[in-house]
């Protein structure tokens, strides 16, 4: 049972490395920003899997905090790409 969960964990790690590849290679700044956004969402899934595997409750708190911070960071980066202030 836990072997299958570890397989899932491995697949999600591969996803994270694909995102990191795009962050490193991406020819322009928006490409990197997209990859950072997607990496944040994948890590939320990773935290949920960790909460199941270890049976510890606090990983879900990490997942929620990560989702909130990732969203705010992405919006701030998008506004920066537009070349405007954050409060418009």
């Amino acid at each position: 049972m836990s072997l299958i969960y570890q397989l899932f964990f491995g697949i999600l790690m591969v996803c994270c490395f694909l995102c990191l590849y795009r962050i490193g290679r991406g020819p322009s700044a928006p490409d990197r920003t997209v990859a950072i956004d997607i990496l944040g969402t994948v890590v939320v899934g990773l935290c949920a899997l960790l909460a199941i595997i270890t049976g510890k409750d606090f990983y879900m708190n990490i997942a929620i905090a990560w989702a909130l911070l990732s969203f705010i960071g992405t919006i701030a980066l998008a506004k920066h790409l537009e070349g405007r202030g954050f409060d418009e």
Partner: peptide
Amino acid sequence: AALCAIFILLTSPTAAHALARGAHLS
């Protein structure tokens, strides 16, 4: 988990929209 799923479902399209617009304007 339910709250987190609802939150991601609401915010992810918004982030994508902001990123697409920012990329096009840049």
